[in-house]
Nucleic acid binder design. Structure first.
Length: 668
DNA sequence: TGGGATGGGGTTTTT
DNA sequence: CCCCATCCCA
C-alpha cells in the first residue's frame, strides 16, 4: 500500500517528507506537526527501497528516539529493528564500543556521569595539593568540558587549570573510563585517526536525519558532517526559537553554518500550528518577537481566539500548589478531561516538592519526569558501582564508592595508603590493593589486610560469576544478600523507615529492570557490558506509559510534549528568567525567553500561570517580583481572577511599578 | 584507625 | 531540609 503524503500532510510537510536526497533544512515551529512529518519522511524512504540499516536518525533524548521508531512502525506496520534511531551520545557510545580498542579503551570501559566527574575533579585537585573547597567545582567541570570540546581555549585566567585538565584526563584513561564529552569527541578523534573506519560508517549510513538541530553542539554537528559530507543526504530539523540547551554546548548558529556548508540545501518552513488555540499562539508570537537573534517566521493557526491564559498571584508556594491542585480538579470536570491531559511545568527542580505535597494530600495521581533520574539515586548508583567495578577493574570511582558501602573496616588512612601506592606504581587502585594484600611486608595492619583481602576476593568471585552462564539478575541478587545491602539501607535511615522501604523498593525495581532486560530476545548474547552501556545514558525515569496521571516536569523536560491544559508555576523574576543565568551572562535573557516560549507553546487550550508574592528559599521567606516576561504578553489576553479586564490591566501595571520600586530600593 | 556525631553549606536546566 | 565534611571518641 503506497503512502499518500499529500493526503496525510499539508503541502509544506509533504514537501519536506518527500525531499529525501540532498541536504535539507527544515525549520519547524512549535506544534507544526514536525514529528508527524519526520515519521512519514522515514516511512516514505523505506517505501522507496532504502533499507532501515542505511538510515541514521539522531534525536535529542532516548525517549524521542524510541518514540520515533515506534511511530514509524505504526505507519509502516513493520518492525524497526534495523533502523538506527538514537541520541548523539548513545550513537557515540556504540562507535566506541565497537572501535574503542583503537584508542586504547578496553572492553567494558565505564561511562562517567556528572557526579562521577565531580568526584574525579575533587580527587584530582587533592592530588595536585589544591584544596577542593577553595574552588568552584561546578565551574571547573564546565571549564573542563568546554576545553575538551574545543568550545574554549585556556586563557590567561584559566591557564592555572592546565595541570588539572591533564590530571583529569589521564585519570579517566587510567580508569578505563570516558565522560559524556568523550562520547562525542572520541568518535571524532577515531574517525580522524582512522579514515578507513570513518569510511565504513559513511558507507553504512547513506541517509542521516537530525532532529532538534537547534540543540546540537558544534562538535555534534561536526560528527554528522564527517559522516555525510560525501553523499550529502543530510536532513536537519529544528526551531531556533526552541533552543534551550546552550549551557550544554548547544549552538543554534549551527543552522547558519549548515546553510554555509551545504549551499545547495533546500529550506522548508513549517509554520502552521496544529496544537494550540489562537490565544496561546498570539501570546507566544508576541513574546518571542522580543528576541533579536532569530530567524524570521510567524506561527499561525486556523483557530481564532479560543482558549484561556490566566495569571494569579498566590501568597506562597503552598497556596500556589493548592491552587493548581484545585484548578486541575475543576477543569477536569468542566471539560471532561483525564489527569494526563494536564502538565505542570517548572523552571527548576526544587519547585517540585511543594506541588508534590499538594497532589499527595488531594489525591491527585501524578508522575514526575525529569528531576533526579532513577539511575542517579544513591542506592541505585551503589549497585551500579558494584556492577561497574566487576565489569571494569580499573574503574576507580566505582571502587571508591563501594569500598565502604556497606562498611568494611577500610578507612581513610588505609585508603590513602592504597591510593598512594597505585599512584607510585601507576597502576589501578584495584591492582594496588591486590598487590598489597599479597605482599609479604604490606605495611598495613593484619586486620586491615584481611578486610581488604576479603573485598578483593569478593569482587573477583562475583566478577567471575557475572561473566559465567548464570543469569545476571540471579548473581546480583545473591551478591546483594551477601553484603546485606538491605540492612545497610535500614541502618542508614534509623529514624525513617518509610524512606528505607522506598529505597529497598528501588533496589528491587532495579533487579527487575535487569531481569526484564535479560529476558528480551533482542538482547540475546549481550553481556554485562551491554547492560551497563544501556543504562549509562538513560536520563529520566522511563515514562512507564502510565496513563491517567498529571505530568509534572521542568520546562526543559517538556520540550516536544503537549497538554490540553498547562500550568506554569513560579513565574517570577529570579526563577524565569533565572537569576543565575543572567548573572552568568545578561545575554542569556534570550534563552530564558525561549524557555518561557517553550513552556507556553506546550498548551493546547489553556495556560494557567502562577506568580507567588512570597516564596521560601533555603530557610528564609523572600518577597518575589513577577516575571518580566509577563509584561511582554498582550495584556488583553490574560485573565486575572476576580477582576474585570480594564481594572485588571491597570492593577497589573501598578503591581509591576510597585515591585520595580521595591527592587530599586534594594529589597531582594 | 574506623565510625558515629555534629555543624556548615547548597544545583538552573541534562545527555 | 538534606547531604557532606570534619572532628572526636572508642
Amino acid at each position: 500500500m503506497a503512502l499518500q503524503l499529500q493526503k496525510e500532510l499539508n503541502p509544506e510537510q509533504a514537501d519536506a517528507a518527500a525531499t529525501i536526497s540532498g541536504p535539507v533544512l527544515i525549520i519547524a515551529g512549535a506544534g507544526s506537526g514536525k514529528t508527524r512529518m519526520i515519521t512519514y519522511r522515514i516511512a516514505y524512504m523505506l517505501e522507496q527501497g532504502i533499507s532501515q540499516s542505511e538510515i541514521l536518525a539522531l534525536t535529542f533524548t532516548n525517549k524521542a528516539a524510541s518514540e520515533m521508531a515506534e511511530r514509524i512502525r505504526l505507519v509502516t506496520g513493520k518492525p524497526m529493528n534495523k533502523l538506527t534511531a538514537s541520541t548523539f551520545h548513545s550513537f557515540g557510545l556504540s562507535v566506541l564500543k565497537r572501535n574503542g580498542s583503537y584508542l586504547g579503551y578496553s572492553k567494558g570501559f565505564s561511562v562517567y556521569d556528572q557526579s562521577d566527574k565531580m568526584g574525579m575533579l575533587k580527587s584530582s585537585l587533592v592530588e595536585l595539593r589544591i584544596d577542593p573547597k577553595s574552588e568552584d567545582l561546578y565551574a571547573l567541570s564546565e571549564l573542563i568540558s568546554s576545553i575538551k570540546t574545543g568550545r574554549l581555549q585556556f586563557s590567561a585566567d584559566t591557564s592555572e587549570y592546565k595541570p588539572l585538565f591533564k590530571e583529569y584526563n589521564s585519570h579517566l584513561k587510567l580508569y578505563n573510563a570516558v565522560d559524556f564529552d568523550d562520547l562525542i569527541m572520541q568518535p571524532i578523534a577515531l574517525f580522524q585517526q582512522f579514515p578507513e573506519i570513518l569510511e565504513l560508517y559513511r558507507k553504512k549510513y547513506k541517509y542521516i536525519l537530525v532532529d532538534e538541530f537547534q540543540d546540537t553542539s558544534i562538535q555534534q554537528y561536526q560528527l554528522v558532517k564527517m559522516l555525510s559530507c560525501n553523499h550529502r543526504n543530510l536532513c536537519v530539523v529544528g526551531d531556533d526559537d526552541q533552543s534551550i540547551y546552550s549551557w550544554r554546548g548547544a549552538d543554534f548558529r549551527n543552522i547558519t553554518n549548515f546553510e554555509k556548508d551545504y549551499p545547495e540545501c533546500r529550506e522548508i518552513k513549517l509554520e502552521q500550528n496544529y496544537r494550540s488555540t489562537g490565544t496561546i499562539i498570539q501570546a507566544a508570537n508576541t513574546l518571542i518577537k522580543n528576541n533579536k537573534n532569530r530567524k524570521k517566521k510567524r506561527l499561525w493557526t486556523g483557530d481564532e481566539k479560543s482558549g484561556i491564559i490566566a495569571l494569579s498571584h498566590p501568597e506562597d508556594e503552598s497556596e500556589e500548589a493548592e491552587f493548581i491542585a484545585d484548578k486541575i480538579k475543576e477543569v477536569m470536570i468542566k471539560h471532561r478531561l483525564r489527569y494526563d491531559n494536564f502538565g505542570v511545568l517548572l523552571r527548576t527542580n526544587n519547585l517540585l516538592t511543594a506541588i508534590e505535597h499538594a497532589f499527595l494530600s488531594s489525591n491527585i495521581p501524578y508522575k514526575v519526569s525529569g528531576g533526579q533520574s532513577f539511575f542517579q539515586r544513591k542506592e541505585i548508583k551503589d549497585i551500579i558501582a558494584y556492577l561497574r567495578i566487576m565489569a571494569n577493574l580499573d574503574d576507580e570511582m566505582s571502587l571508591l564508592r563501594i569500598i565502604n558501602t556497606p562498611k568494611r573496616g577500610i578507612g581513610k588512612t588505609t585508603l590513602q595508603f592504597f591510593r598512594k601506592l597505585s599512584d607510585q606504581k601507576n597502576c589501578s587502585l584495584f591492582s594496588a590493593i591486590t598487590a598489597s594484600v599479597h605482599a609479604a611486608d604490606t605495611g598495613i595492619r593484619e586486620s586491615i589486610r584481611r578486610n581488604s583481602s576479603e573485598l578483593i576476593d569478593f569482587i573477583n568471585s562475583y566478577r567471575e560469576q557475572l561473566f559465567s552462564r548464570k543469569k545476571l539478575s540471579t548473581v546480583l541478587t545473591s551478591m546483594l544478600t551477601d553484603i546485606s545491602y538491605k540492612n545497610h539501607i535500614i541502618s542508614e535511615h534509623p529514624d525513617n523507615d518509610q524512606l528505607a522501604q522506598w529505597k529497598m523498593k528501588n533496589v528491587d525495581l532495579f533487579i527487575s529492570i535487569l531481569d526484564r532486560w535479560e529476558r528480551n530476545p533482542d538482547k540475546k548474547g549481550d553481556s554485562l557490558y551491554d547492560f551497563l552501556g544501556s543504562i549509562s545514558l538513560v536520563g529520566k525515569t522511563e515514562p512507564d506509559q502510565e496513563a491517567g496521571k498529571v505530568n509534572l516536569m521542568t520546562v526543559h523536560a517538556s520540550k516536544g510534549l503537549e497538554f490540553h491544559t498547562v500550568f506554569l508555576a513560579g513565574v517570577e523574576d529570579h526563577i524565569i528568567p533565572h537569576k543565575r543565568s543572567l548573572e552568568e551572562n545578561p545575554d542569556n535573557i534570550e534563552e530564558e525567553r525561549r524557555l518561557f516560549y517553550v513552556a507556553i507553546t506546550r498548551a493546547k487550550n489553556n495556560l494557567y500561570m502562577t506568580s507567588c508574592r512570597t516564596r521560601k528559599y533555603m530557610r528564609e521567606v523572600i518577597e518575589t517580583i513577577p516575571s518580566r516576561f509577563l509584561e511582554e504578553l498582550p495584556s488583553d489576553l490574560i485573565e486575572q481572577p476576580g477582576e474585570d479586564t480594564v481594572a485588571d490591566v491597570e492593577s497589573a501595571a501598578n503591581y509591576f511599578d510597585q515591585m520595580r520600586q521595591r527592587l530599586k530600593a534594594g529589597v531582594p
